[in-house]
Amino acid sequence: MSAPAASGRNPLIPLAGALVAGLIFGVGLIVAGMSNPAKVLGFLDLAGAWDPSLALVMVGGIGVARLGLLLGRRTRRSASGEPFHASGHRPVNRRLLVGSALFGIGWGLAGYCPGPAVVAVGAGSLAALPLVAGMLIGLWVRGPRKAD
């Protein structure tokens, strides 16, 4: 949990870090074209005129995120003083598979995953509003089974 950092560093650092990260994340999604569900569906439509762009978004994202992870291995704590909150290596279980299947159905029905949906609301896209409403209900109706 995020009790105040033991090192007593400036409490604004995590807020600034998260704000900047969210901003860059959103800009990245828009630049990549992922804020447009039609483009995402173009990737998901393997049997139609297939747009492979989303695969390259993942390649770029995974590659650069990996560099960040490797950099983080040099220190015990993050810059804000918070420890690294990594989810442990839990097994692949039914919950993960069922949840991912439900998510995939929803993603395929609309072309929105959580990040682009929030960004689209920020852009004033009315199409994303009912989706985000449903998503927040889905996320908030039941808590996580255990603290993780």
């Binding site: 990245g28 828009i30 993942m58 994202g61 590659g63 983080g72 993050s78 804000s80």
Partner: peptide, 17 residues
């Protein structure tokens, strides 16, 4: 755009953990 997403993930990891 993907690289920016990876950069954002790196910032949140390295600054906030």
């Amino acid at each position: 755009g993907g690289a920016l997403i990876g950069l954002a993930a790196s910032v949140l990891w390295l600054v906030n953990g």
